[in-house]
Design a protein around this nucleic acid. Structure first.
Lengths: 154, 154
DNA sequence: CCTGAAAATGTGACCGC
DNA sequence: GCGGTCACATTTTCAGG
């Protein structure tokens, strides 16, 4: 079964309903999901498996309260990365679990990272490590003003 | 049952193992999870329910390939928001599902948003809407250089 | 996409450490 | 408190239509 890696997939209303439900509550049973989207559990299962193998759904993840697990400091670090030797940075990303997300973008600051730290001191050491690669701009996050969400049915 | 909203929770190795597994694969069965952390399914269930009610685990979410569902453009928009009338912005965030994330931070740009768009034109209209609130800086994302991950056991 | 039966899992009461 | 065992309800899976 060939998987198209680039283009959009055609999704009908039921697919969108399934995606919407699983984006909000990924651990509901397939039968409960079927009830919500008005499909039998076997049809629902097949739809979900299909969305997974098409790569539409890429995974299911528990989300954790960072403060409660001992990472009360969240920051956004932008990194201006001169040159194109990206390998060492990749290595750091793989090693440091405190780096939660790394986006490569247009603009002066090539990378934007989301970093969780156990304290301001900890954040300082993390930023120092990143500063070894280029100049950094750090902003500490006060609050996340939006509950989790994904894209919706256009 | 009172829930402490501020402080960190004491987690043992098994709790961390459970969190680690569910961060990676949130839809595994509780018995499978029990097998992986070497606990019976009922003990595992109790641990998971406890982590949920303590607010350590805040939810389970399916993650979707944005391009495959028709949002091939991802951007980071920083918003310099003068004054303190945050209500109208909240309203926009609630309405526009294209805004996936909104962090309020220290620094000149008070808000950092992650925005998904169906096209560059669509992104333009979204940024225009945001520009109604203050000056914006937009960076388009080339790639996400890190698989999903959460905080790890210190 | 549905039904239906067998296997696996979820749930909760109860016991032992 | 914390985890294991057991019985019963629900869900998952897969054949067949």
């Amino acid at each position: 079964m060939a998987v198209n890696l680039d283009e959009a997939v055609n999704l009908d209303d039921i697919d969108w309903a399934i995606i919407g439900q699983l984006q909000q509550e990924a651990r509901i049973s397939l039968s409960e999901l079927g009830r919500r989207v008005k499909l039998s559990s076997s049809a629902t299962t097949e739809r979900v498996r299909n969305l997974e193998s098409l790569g539409v759904i890429t995974g299911y993840h528990a989300v954790v309260d960072l403060a409660k697990v001992g990472y009360p400091v969240l920051a956004i670090v932008r990194l201006k990365y001169p040159g194109n030797r990206h390998q060492p940075l990749r290595r750091l990303l793989a090693e440091r679990q405190e780096i939660l997300e790394c986006l490569r973008t247009t603009g002066d600051d090539c990378y934007t990272l989301k970093v969780a730290a156990r304290s301001m001191e900890h954040l300082e050491t993390l930023v120092d490590e990143l500063a070894g690669f280029g100049s950094t701009t750090t902003n500490v996050v006060y609050s996340q003003t939006l509950a989790y969400r994904g894209p919706g049915h256009p």
